[in-house]
Design a protein around this nucleic acid. Structure first.
Lengths: 233, 233
DNA sequence: TCAAAAGTGTTCAGCTTACACCCATGA
DNA sequence: TCATGGGTGTAAGCTGAACACTTTTGA
């Protein structure tokens, strides 16, 4: 979407195609998406998803990755195609179909500058309390959230949102926040993770209010399987 | 794909976007896809998926439906977006991204003329024995098949491939053909279908080699839920 | 009365769910 | 020693797989 702003139309960009990216992260016990504020019409001053044009010689995924990097400073990110939106009226200026992607970034990966809360043009918003969004971007975010929730049940994508090292409680919190279901049973959750055989213990413990919690990280070799293998039965 | 052949580029068609449709049907104990033979370069004489350009004022889904109707004479069909393919080299002539859809049609819906086996330009091929396909169409078919197999496990899409009335054995055969797994247990399959509560009995029986089989049809009100509800646990 | 296919009931293993309990730490 | 949160074991219940069995037809 909105190719003209983030990247002026060039001879070498595709005319009727754009890419929008729903970038999720977990911050302060909340699932948040990256939004940018529009500085021109239509939808001036509305928040919208990061989006832009596709170069003539790049894949859609490369375009999404490029955008992601320009907005967050991060590369090497989990990125997946979501859906292609094509309502002819979705952009009032001209016909643009938008290929939506969703990305998962851990808060750890985000550098301080990109996390600056006071930025006028880019900030992170709770998916549970979104402002009015430009174009059909509210639909896109909702769909991305639905897909994330499905995916988390059978694959290990949740780890893409976790820091390098984490406790089992922190992982369970992540699941509960994403699913918006805070009733998961601790013992059963741990058993499920143990049987999936995707974690390995690391040295050290996290200080908590009570007994210190063991730290884990994602097994490197399991990480490679994330996109392919079905982790949970 | 291949916008230039099935529909000459017009001022009102999108330049860099096309739609390809993987049309599945069940015929003679086989899962088949509809293919058209190319009559010009590139990939002259290769088989390819039905595809075409998108008009400036129609959605991608409408374009896919229009194509589907022109090739099969059928409307009111199960149609779902699959994936958007964007490799810059996928069409050697120019940059075209292709939004792939998959459609499910029962053999009953297809009129005799469209089923003509001897047609030089359009015919149905077993997914288990495909010819070499033009462009990246083999990838598209494979991906569609994977998705169909997933979907059949938790939703009622298989019914889209069945005739109006059918026996439980015929339904089980459909599942086994699609999954390419001919070991499903009869009793367990029937129990699963019964518990899903999506069928209703109709008058009459199908003559078979042994005891006649009761005929069923899909419950009309359940049909509305197909796209939304998760039928199987 | 036998073959063929429809249709049903029952057992057993494995998994999920719920819940109770113990452990380690700091105040 | 008590509150807090980490960590584990187990019994009950449910689900799915395997299989044996009965029923109804035509030859």
């Amino acid at each position: 979407m909105d190719a003209s702003r983030t990247q002026p139309p060039q001879a070498k960009a595709l005319e009727n195609v754009s890419v929008d990216v729903v970038i999720f992260t977990l911050r302060s016990h909340d699932l948040q998406v990256c939004l940018v504020r529009r500085d021109c019409d239509p939808f001036m001053n509305y928040w919208s998803l990061p989006g832009g044009a596709v170069d003539a010689d790049e894949t859609l995924e490369a375009a999404a990755m490029r955008l992601l990097h320009s907005k967050t400073g991060v590369s090497d990110v989990y990125l997946q195609q979501l859906y292609t939106f094509s309502n002819p009226e979705r952009d009032p200026r001209r016909r643009v179909i938008s290929v939506a992607y969703f990305a998962l970034i851990s808060a750890e990966q985000l550098s301080a500058e990109h996390l600056d809360e006071n930025s006028e043009s880019l900030s992170w918003h709770s998916v549970f309390n979104l402002p009015a969004l430009a174009f059909d971007h509210a639909d896109i975010v909702n769909y991305a959230l639905t897909r994330l929730r499905y995916k988390i049940e059978y694959s290990a994508v949740a780890f893409e949102l976790m820091p390098e090292e984490f406790t089992l409680r922190e992982l369970q919190d992540a699941y509960m926040i994403i699913l918006d279901d805070h009733t998961l049973d601790k013992a059963n959750f741990r058993k499920k993770i143990r049987e999936a055989d995707i974690l390995e213990g690391v040295e050290g413990y996290r200080e908590t209010g009570g007994r210190p919690a063991k730290l884990y990280r994602f097994r490197k070799d399991a990480q490679l399987e994330v996109k392919a293998r079905r982790i949970f039965p």
